[in-house]
Nucleic acid binder design. Structure first.
Lengths: 107, 107
DNA sequence: GAGTTTCATAACTGATGAGTTATGAGTTAG
DNA sequence: CTAACTCATAACTCATCAGTTATGAAACTC
């Protein structure tokens, strides 16, 4: 089976797809056309990446006339933050580096 | 080019590989044989996954006689925590869900 | 030294997926 | 209505990669 966490990690594994998500986080809502203009890949490729991000809950789409606007949904990063924190916690007390990691996550 | 962040995300994208890393975080240092026993895949497959995790800096190996012991390196999760936090921050002020995410990361 | 154990690497197979071009569906403009 | 535009899907190609079996290298046992 394909868990939601699997979807999330796989969605972020591709550099092109991650770059699209980063752009949405930095610049806010964008149309497919605007994203395609600087994505370095074809429009269908961008559409497919956006579909993968949407399946992982990382973006939302809004239709307006013939354009589709995509926006980031940072709430979907929650499980990622949880997982990272859990892994560090499990190892807590046995090893180093935990302090550094947690201090980086606090604020 | 293949950046270190790319390596990290790709290493964690595979469920089998992520499960190996989780086991190391939960149970601590393990030999290849011990990991193979419950991994559900063959020993060469486990060795290859461990090599990928090592390339991403997520594990360290220690040779002792004919056995190789692998241990987690949670410090390698730092860039992942940073990236997650950055994405949430970029979107800060524009959207919701940030409070929830950050509160989950604080401790 | 011969056999056994432990792990890594080689060589191969099959599935997955990222990319393409072509096309279709829906929307706006003339 | 026709034409142009925006995006998604279909169909396909190619590379990558997770898995396998077979083998090799190193270390321990007898």
């Amino acid at each position: 089976m394909e868990t939601q966490t699997d979807l999330l990690f796989r969605a972020l594994a591709d550099p092109t797809r991650r770059a699209l998500f980063e752009r949405l986080c930095r610049e806010g809502e964008q149309t497919v056309g605007a994203l395609t203009a600087t994505a370095g890949v074809s429009q269908p490729a961008v559409s497919k990446h956006l579909a993968a991000l949407k399946a992982a809950g990382l973006v939302a789409d809004r239709h307006e006339g013939r354009q589709t606007h995509y926006s980031p949904r940072t709430a979907a990063l929650g499980p990622l933050a949880d997982w990272t924190k859990d892994m560090a916690r499990f190892w807590e007390g046995r090893f180093d580096a935990l302090e550094d990691l947690l201090s980086r996550m606090d604020q």
